[in-house]
Simulated scan of single mutants.
Amino acid sequence: MHAIEHHDIRVNGVTLHYAAAGEPDAPLVVLLHGFPECWYSWRHQLPALAAAGYRVVAPDQRGFARSDAPAAVEAYSLPHLVGDVVALTRELGADRFAVVGHDWGAPVAWQTALFRPDLVRGVVGLSVTPPFPRQGDTPPLAVMDALFEGRFYWNYFCRPGLADAEFAADPARTFRSFLYGASGDNPRNDPQPAQPLTQPDGTFLGHLDDTKDLPAWLSDADIAVFVAEYEKNGFTGGLNWYRNLDRNWELSAAWDRLPLLVPGRYITGDRDLVGSFPGMQEGVAALPLLYPALQPTLTLPGCGHWTQQERPAEVNAALLEFLAGLPA
């Protein structure tokens, strides 16, 4: 069993905390978490990939957990986040690396691979696909606002201070609600989750189920770790990623339809809430045409949004198979 180490490193104008396992000179794999998560979301992957001969690094991305959280909302654009990954790997001495991202970490992983195929050996996205071609001329927050009368969770998360305060009021409840509520173990997500909308009273957590009976993959001790990791920064830094959705859409015109030049893999669960977003099913079906370098989609039956936490054995096996097949 490889021990998980913890380090801080200064890159791209911020100090990032990261967890690591494996020998320093082994092939590097970077694991990028989503919201509301941190390095601990990869607790099952760090030792497993290290045991297979990789150096595995899972940073707390900027704004999250123990890493720096810049005050400026615009400091969380995708170019900033990709820049953090590139700078981190350079500081670690890696000429090439593989990158895996879940939830918000997936767009960062995909964009890192799209922007820097000279550095990235392969890319895996969990839950979130590579970017679809731009459609129309309306930014995403306005699209979702119109479709769901302002109740879609993106729009709520972007309102200054609201979600920040709701989630910080009781962090343990927040993590229980997110992690159980969006999981494949929640009966409300069978066969597919409903759209993640705010409640009639204007809050969000009521949309999710908070249960005292946690599923087997999640314990009270796990919840306690997430709560402790968020003591430094709270939730605002992570919410600022959502507050850049329109800015990222504007910037994305420069790389619309950029081809993926490195091997890739998309992994999801059939009870993942992202799969219920408008246009997702059609987009996933079109992935082989949009990105010929992608391997076939792996869909895990009965799995919800927290892919690598809910199904660690299956995700680890898929990652190891993918990594073993990459060019040297």
Rank of each mutant, 00 (worst) to 15 (best):
S252N: 12
P36E: 04
Y266K: 01
S127Y: 01
D68Q: 14
L300R: 02
G283I: 11
L49M: 12
P191H: 10
G206Q: 02
N316G: 00
V262A: 06
P171E: 01
F115I: 08
F132C: 00
L320N: 06
A324H: 14
C303I: 15
P196T: 13
E91S: 11
C303N: 03
T236V: 14
G237P: 03
A318M: 05
A26S: 05
P327H: 12
A221R: 14
P131S: 08
V57T: 12
V85P: 08
D220M: 05
G264K: 04
Q295R: 15
T129K: 04
V57G: 10
W241Y: 14
P133F: 07
L126N: 02
G122H: 03
D210P: 05
L46W: 03
L251N: 04
G279F: 14
N248S: 08
T138P: 04
V82A: 00
A94V: 11
G125K: 06
N248E: 10
G202M: 12
A51L: 02
R62H: 11
L197D: 10
Q192M: 11
E250I: 08
A169M: 07
Y266E: 07
E23C: 00
P288A: 03
F148D: 09
D270C: 09
T236E: 11
G202W: 04
R176A: 02
R188P: 02
L251Q: 11
P200S: 09
Q308T: 07
N189Y: 09
E74Q: 12
Q309I: 04
V99N: 01
P133Q: 08
